[in-house]
Design a protein around this nucleic acid. Structure first.
Lengths: 139, 139
DNA sequence: TTTGCTGCAAACGCTTTGCACATTC
DNA sequence: GAATGTGCAAAGCGTTTGCAGCAAA
């Protein structure tokens, strides 16, 4: 899974006419199989371990390139933007307490329509407490 | 409708032990019946006409007080936060082109559950093109 | 060789903060 | 009179930009 995802990304980059720089390859390695929905800053911090000196601008630049070609999604959930390498249709659960974001499989359902609006995407966010924080809150 | 909404807000403020300053009353007048989902900055700009010299900090302070007591909602849709005085359950449609946010009535449906997560609220965002921008795009 | 990408640092926009002063209760 | 709220300006944070140099194709 991990390898194929990374290969898919390399293909996507090449297919979009984007250069396979060492920084981008490092990002693919660090991010392609990430399920933590990191912020750009968090990803940059993590990358610095693997690629000392990589610039924040490069991280932002590559993330928006990946988003533009549909290889990842940008999530706006409040605070800093988060990025999700999983582009299959799914929803998100955000813990009010610890802030962690979890993927939630989307139930099969007829495509939503809104009168007078051309719907391209539907995003759904569940807010509340993750199991761990809910348990802690009951103590 | 307009008057009763404003009266409701004044009650909410008083009930929460918050002072009814002139700035806050001006905000109630300007915002209680607003359907444009303004940003704090936009609201501040509008308020300046009615209440010259009102400070941005006051606008932010009051908006977060109102949000805290449940009199309005803060929407995180990308870019600056928007505020919605309509706190009845409903969804939002955001135009990718002009950025306008529209309320969308929520279809009746069984309460959503997520395994291993205590859901408190569900937010849904429809992204695409509003009728006006869709028409412009077809030309 | 030709682009496009990178790193740096400065600038940006939105939001929060600290503090002296004013105002509401 | 005792809090609480206000305005101001500065600082905070995430993000973008401009540009000279570098590296991928």
């Amino acid at each position: 899974m991990a390898e194929s995802d990374q290969a898919k990304w390399v293909e996507a980059l090449r297919g979009a006419g984007l250069r396979l720089t060492r920084q981008r390859l490092a990002m693919v390695e660090c991010f392609a199989d990430d399920v933590s929905h990191p912020t750009a800053q968090a990803l940059h911090a993590r990358l610095c371990a693997r690629f000392p000196g990589i610039s924040v601008a490069t991280v932002y630049n590559t993330l928006s390139a990946l988003t533009a070609i549909g290889a990842c999604r940008k999530l706006e959930l409040g605070g800093a933007s988060r990025f999700d390498p999983n582009v299959t249709p799914h929803d998100h659960a955000v813990c009010d307490d610890c802030g962690r974001v979890r993927d939630v499989q989307r139930a099969r359902r007829a495509a939503a329509t809104v009168p007078g609006f051309e719907v391209h995407r539907v995003e759904r966010v569940f807010r509340g407490l993750c199991a761990q924080c809910a348990r802690a809150a009951r103590v």
